[in-house]
Nucleic acid binder design. Structure first.
Length: 483
RNA sequence: CGGGAUGUGGCGCAGCCUGGUAGCGCACCUGACUGGGGGUCAGGGGGCCGCCGGUUCGAAUCCGGCCAUCCCGACCA
């Protein structure tokens, strides 16, 4: 029995042995995604796509609730349009895919495959906006984008990826700033409530901010290998794009002014984030809110089980579905119950229900949690209240566990020696005072591989010197090695 | 984009050094017995050896190019 268990485990590399290998094994074995013939591109398989769809729904609800409407802009953008904003094009130029030919004809003007849509949306906003009465414009787009990446990994960094990009235009700087922060808050709420992924909010340093933005805000999560993952970004674009795309409006005081804009995005990268936040050596662990199947029912096959057990299993399924639970009844005859247990654990289903002759006799079902593996008998007539309660408990416990891990892996120091030792030995977030100088930031990166993930929103007072140089510290920064 | 490694049925690998008609485990198909933590037995199917070219009577094996993947670094959601 121990031998069998051992043989099974070799299908997934243990996390402690090689985390990145573990990650790839989970992606493949849980059938989340597969490789394509083109470098850096990925096929999102149905099970992985179902997770993304649940994320989309949860995000889209929040966007609608904050007054945003969905729209769609084209995949192709003329080169000249992208070139209008200098910092923007400089930021993206190395990552852009070009279309130079249509059919047999060479195009007169090259097209870029959108790496993001600020340019085309800015152009359209210029047409649509005349007066302060047209503002604010609050749009979101669900789309694919392409960035030519040198190093790629499924979900975490792919050449083509799926995301949403919100684009808003406002009358005042204050409103735009408010919007950028509001959406950052939406992202934090989404990550923590739906993905059970605790995040740190903050502002990006100058060198890490979005090309063309005034401010970039981000939420940063800590993965199971103690490296940080940028989980979402929200940009206050100021009037940078408005000026180059000539997005003007007549204000209440009759003057003509440029609009103030924001943009914000989250991507399929989050699927990778969920895997690396919660998974263990047996595979995926999905938070119930984004689990395609929240419950898997495994009937115990014995004798003429199709007459004795299956009807009970089907009744369980029907009741749970009626109660709003996403259920998979695994009635396959070709696999043993034990095989199914292992398989659905690998695929991260939060709760397993077993029903067999003994349970039917006792009017109960056996439940097993994926995260703790705790088993408990649930009285048959309490099913539709107990199961949703269990799912909610798992959702909360996963978040608490991830937050505990994050907090355990967060340290404070003002000593560079200690800083380096931490990044070397037991990394995670390190909160340290920083002088605000980009050269110092770059040196820290060279010397320790750690980057400023972001700068806490309410940093409070900082005294003393920068963690690395002697200059006075201007603020606290979250440092980490990152994806 | 540099350094290193890999590419052989779905997955994991052996074979390559020393060229001679491709093998193992798991998975898969059929049947029987089984079934509460990856069952047993019997029978069976499946491979352009990543792609293109070269050397050779003959290439999975030797040589060159390309593509892809992985790991470590420089750039990025």
């Amino acid at each position: 029995m121990a031998d069998k268990k051992g043989a099974f485990v070799t299908e997934i590399t243990p996390r402690s042995e090689e985390f990145s290998r573990w990650y790839l094994d989970v992606v493949r074995r849980a059938e989340l995604a597969d490789y394509s013939p083109v470098k850096g591109c990925m096929i999102i398989r149905p099970y992985g796509y179902a997770i993304w769809e649940l994320m989309q729904q949860a995000l889209d609800r929040r966007f609608k609730a904050t007054g945003h409407l969905n729209a769609y802009f084209p995949l192709f953008i003329p080169e000249s349009l992208l070139r209008k904003e200098a910092a923007h094009v400089d930021g993206f130029a190395p990552q852009v895919a070009w279309v130079t030919q249509g059919g047999d004809e060479t195009l007169e003007e090259r097209l870029v495959v959108r790496p993001t849509s600020e340019a085309i949306i800015g152009m359209m906003y210029a047409k649509w906006i005349q007066s302060w009465r047209d503002l604010p414009i609050l749009l979101n787009q669900w789309a694919n984008v392409v960035r030519w990446e040198k190093v790629t990994r499924p979900f975490l960094r792919t050449t083509e990826f799926l995301w949403q990009e919100g684009h808003t235009a406002h009358e005042t700087e204050h409103e735009a700033e408010e919007e950028a922060l509001r959406m950052l808050g939406v992202y934090k709420d989404f990550a923590e409530q739906e993905l059970a992924m605790p995040v740190l909010e903050g502002r990006k340093s100058e060198s890490e901010k979005f090309a063309g933005a005034v401010h970039t805000y981000s939420i940063e999560a800590l993965m199971g290998d103690a490296r940080a993952l940028q989980a979402g970004t929200s940009h206050h674009l100021g009037q940078n794009f408005a000026k180059v795309f000539d997005i003007t409006f007549q204000a209440r005081d009759k003057s003509v002014q440029h609009v103030w804009q924001t943009s914000w995005g989250m991507s399929t990268r989050l699927v990778g984030g969920v895997i690396m936040t919660h998974g263990d050596d047996s595979g995926l662990i999905l938070p119930p809110n984004v689990a395609p199947y929240q419950v898997v029912i495994v009937p115990i096959l014995r004798g003429n089980w199709q007459e004795t057990v299956l009807p009970h299993a089907e009744a369980l399924r029907d009741e749970l579905v009626a109660a709003g639970v996403r259920v998979m009844l695994d009635a396959r005859d070709e696999h043993s119950p034990g095989w199914k247990f292992a398989e659905w654990e690998l695929r991260g289903v939060p709760v397993r229900l077993e029903i067999g002759p003994k349970d039917i006799e006792k009017a109960q079902v056996m439940s097993a949690r994926r995260d703790t593996r705790a088993k408990a008998a649930i009285p048959r007539d309490e099913l539709t209240t107990r199961v949703p309660a269990l799912l909610a408990e798992i959702q909360a416990d996963l978040f608490a566990r991830a937050r505990q891990f994050r907090d355990d892996r967060t340290s404070h120091t003002a000593s560079y020696e200690e800083f380096k030792a931490t990044m070397d030995g037991r990394p995670g977030f390190v909160v340290a005072p920083w002088c605000g100088d980009a050269a110092c930031e770059a040196a820290i990166k060279t010397e320790t591989q750690a980057t400023i993930r972001n700068l806490p929103m309410q940093g409070g007072e900082v005294s003393g010197a920068c963690v690395r140089c002697d200059a006075p510290a201007r603020e606290q920064a979250y440092f980490a090695k990152s994806y």
